[in-house]
């Protein structure tokens, strides 16, 4: 892993931080992209100190569509070797708030879907030309079936998953693996104030599972694995029953 660099997109999130630790522990260098520069500087210092790898904070805003191609090119220039992408940028406004204020839903869509799509689109020719690299993106179990309480967010994650299917096909010939992680709820700032969620997992454990799974190649993966049977059941629930559930 020594000559690889992971570009962590949305690196201030707890899951991204944990994944960056995992990658650094395996000797990978890091580019840490996000908006909160003081926070990214702290993370970069920590990774360097603990693991002796190079870690560089980069200012990046997922919602700034016009900036994506330039950002991808700048990253490619920085890293002549193998460049892997970990996409963790994501927003989850409360459903009711996003309904009351449609611009909130629009902003979420930009962070969760259109921004990442623009960025990954810009990276596609770069990765294809290098014939190397992986893309790991954080989807969500919320994208598997739209729930009454959270279907705006769910729809954005479904869109991301669908985008990644085609993206993976596009890059398949060049040997670039694309993994869509169907993440269950993680114990992070995003879920802190929410009512207790089932099978809540710790970011460090999820990061370890994602790292291991990413090493095995692309596709889709439920993390934690329990969500695979759970979501299979939920997807199979007849509509009449599903519609009566209050979740």
């Amino acid at each position: 892993m020594a000559d690889e660099t992971w570009l962590i997109l949305g690196a201030s999130s707890a899951l991204a931080r944990a994944f960056a630790q995992e990658a650094a522990a395996h000797g990978a260098d890091l580019l840490l992209a996000g908006r909160d520069m003081p926070d990214l500087e702290a993370l970069a210092a920590d990774l360097q100190l603990r693991h002796g790898v190079a870690a560089t904070p980069l200012s990046w805003d997922a919602a700034d569509l016009a900036a994506q191609p330039g950002f991808a090119a700048a990253c490619a220039e920085r890293v002549p070797g193998v460049l892997n992408l970990f996409l963790a940028a994501g927003a989850m406004p409360e459903q009711a708030a996003a309904e009351a204020e449609p611009s909130l839903a629009g902003a979420m869509w930009a962070v969760n879907v259109t921004g990442p799509a623009a960025l990954l689109g810009a990276f596609a020719p770069i990765l294809a030309a290098r014939k190397a690299g992986r893309v790991v993106a954080l989807g969500s179990v919320a994208g598997d079936r739209g729930r009454r309480r959270n279907h705006l967010y769910g729809a954005s994650k479904a869109a991301l998953a669908t985008f990644l299917q085609g993206y993976a096909a596009r890059l398949a010939a060049s040997g670039v693996e694309v993994l869509c992680v169907k993440a269950g709820p993680a114990d992070t700032a995003m879920t802190w104030a929410l009512p207790k969620l089932p099978f809540m997992a710790q970011p460090a454990a999820m990061a370890r599972a994602i790292w291991r799974r990413a090493g095995k190649g692309g596709g889709e993966a439920y993390v934690p694995l329990i969500w695979w049977p759970v979501m299979t059941l939920i997807r199979l629930l007849p509509r009449r029953i599903f519609n009566r559930l209050d979740f």
């Binding site: 201030s12 909160d36 003081p38 926070d39 700032a189 802190w192």
Partner: peptide
């Protein structure tokens, strides 16, 4: 209880 993950929070 709050559990901030960064200085800003």
């Amino acid at each position: 209880a709050a559990r901030p993950e960064r200085l800003r929070d």
